Amino acid sequence: MNWKFVFVGSLLACLTTSSIVRAETPASKTEADFVSLFDGETMKGWKIAEENPDSWVIEDGSLVCQGDRCHLFYVGDLAPFKNFHFKADVMTTPGSNSGIYFHTSYQPEGWPKQGYECQVNVSHKDPKKTSSLYNVENVADPGVKDNEWYTQEIIVEGRHIVLKVNGKTMVDYTEPENKQPESEQFARRLGEGTFALQAHDPKSKVMIRNLRVKKLAE
């Protein structure tokens, strides 16, 4: 037996195992720092807008929207949010449209005025596709398909917004200092607030699950 080769082989195996451990541990720790926003079974911590409340249901551990316009707002103990890292798993069906608002506030009806919207749209006719910072920095091709789960991330630190799909950065935007409200209808500026999920129209069915967030230092 050539003991030199045995020793080298054992050393390489140890180094490989060590590298795997080092690579996996930070990711596991990072995910463990996130706090769930949805228990998969009830609307606890969430409040449905007064218009068309039947547009939101829970199915198989997911929040599911299908129906006339209605927004679902997070009103749990973790709110409000300023600097944060948000993640959710999303699945669209063909031709559907939805959105994830942040830095917004509860409204009984209408499109949310406060904050920004992260678009949810793979094949709807609206050219602003999934992970667009709606009407601010738009995405034409998010690289995902209908009827398949993808992970949407929203990261806000100070005036900096990053939107990611399956780990790939789609939007990297820094809000100008002293940005004024865009219009009376939509502010589209940072401050602090909560998250809202959008039921857009009766032909749009979207599933959202595994919503979690990590607050970041201010």
Rank of each mutant, 00 (worst) to 15 (best):
E109C: 05
A217S: 15
G193H: 00
N52P: 01
A140M: 12
R159D: 12
L72H: 07
G40Q: 07
W46C: 04
E31S: 15
F7H: 05
A140F: 14
V156N: 06
V120R: 00
D33S: 15
K215F: 05
K82I: 12
G193N: 06
V171W: 13
P127E: 06
A23D: 13
V6F: 11
H124I: 02
A27V: 15
T130K: 02
L163S: 09
I154R: 11
N135H: 10
S18D: 13
H103Y: 02
Y74R: 01
L37K: 02
C70M: 02
G61P: 12
K179M: 07
D126Y: 02
K82R: 12
H200F: 04
E24A: 15
G45Q: 05
F73L: 06
I161T: 03
P181W: 00
T169F: 07
F38L: 08
Q114G: 10
F7P: 03
G191W: 11
Y150Q: 12
G193A: 05
D146N: 03
P176V: 07
A196V: 02
V162Y: 06
E218K: 08
Q185P: 08
D60F: 03
V165L: 08
P112L: 00
L15R: 06
E51P: 01
F86G: 05
K44D: 10
I58V: 13
P176F: 09
P94S: 12
I58A: 04
M170I: 13
F5A: 15
T130G: 09
A13H: 11
T16S: 13
G76R: 00
L163K: 08
K47V: 07
Y150M: 14
V120A: 04
D39M: 08
V206N: 01
N210Y: 07
Q114D: 15
P112D: 00
H85W: 14
L197Q: 03
P112V: 01
R212F: 12
G40K: 06
K205D: 03
R69K: 13
K168R: 15
L216S: 02
G193K: 01
K214Q: 14
H160P: 01
R188S: 13
A13R: 14
Q107I: 09
M1I: 09
Y116A: 01
T30F: 15
E59L: 08
F186P: 00
F81C: 10
S183R: 04
Y74I: 03
L63P: 10
I58Y: 00
G61V: 13
V35C: 08
A32H: 11
A196D: 13
K145L: 06
D54I: 03
V144I: 14
N2F: 02
K129V: 09
G61T: 10
L37F: 02
S132Y: 00
P80V: 06
I20K: 08
V90Q: 07
Y74A: 02
N135T: 11
Y106D: 04
Q185L: 05
E153V: 15
K203I: 09
G143Y: 12
L15W: 13
G193Q: 06
F38R: 00
V75F: 12
Q185T: 14
Q114Y: 12
N121W: 02
K164W: 07
H85E: 11
Q198V: 07
P53T: 04
D201N: 12
N2T: 09
N52T: 04
F186Q: 04
T104K: 01
A27P: 15
K125Y: 10
T130H: 02
P181I: 05
M1P: 07
Y106V: 03
F81L: 01
V165G: 09
T104F: 01
M91L: 10
E117L: 07
